[in-house]
Amino acid sequence: MTSTGLILKDVHLGIGGRTLLNGLSLEIAPGEIVTLMGESGSGKSSLIAYICGSLDAEFDVAGSITLEEQDIVSLPIERRRIGVMFQDDVLFAHMSVGENLAFAVPKGIGKAERQRRVDDALVEAELEGFAARDPATLSGGQKARVALMRALLAEPRAMLLDEPFSRLDATLRERVRNFAFTTIKRRNIPALLVTHDLQDKTDRVITLGTANN
């Protein structure tokens, strides 16, 4: 295993004197998707927030997180370059599907190239011709695919998936899950999925104990 992936070392999370995570260490190599399985209340969503940088200040935290050998704990969200796929798709309602995607393309790229990347993303998500659509008109599975493509267009160094399939119905969940896993693998970045769905199996599954008070 290389040291260039996402590495958690001895991570502790707690809130109000209650321990959520007690010394979690984990290495995720580029191209690997690790599943963190746990009941609600086991601190898995807080861990996602801690890695992504959006954890509330009221949490007590300890432990290091490095990504591509850089310590990211002290960086604000926007400097971490970690993509997140949330439970809700959070597509921006005032932008078209194409604009949502273009929003994520890094700056300093010419107009034609931006457009090409957006088009490629739509093709990859099997959503050709959807650029002008209003996100509200998309189905749940389509929204999830756009949300993932948007996160990936920002060229993240790692991906976090916070129960992204739980809102989809069973048949759709299977398809979107396969799409997400192959698409992320293609980017060759480390990814962490938290879920309580036993079907969400990936390269490696780690089960968290329920809130070990």
């Binding site: 992504c52 959006s54 400097r79 970690i82 997140v84 949330f86 809700d88 959070v90």
Partner: peptide, 10 residues
């Protein structure tokens, strides 16, 4: 969540 999403894109 929208803020987290946009900020995670930089």
């Amino acid at each position: 969540t929208m803020m987290r999403s946009a900020r995670s894109m930089g």
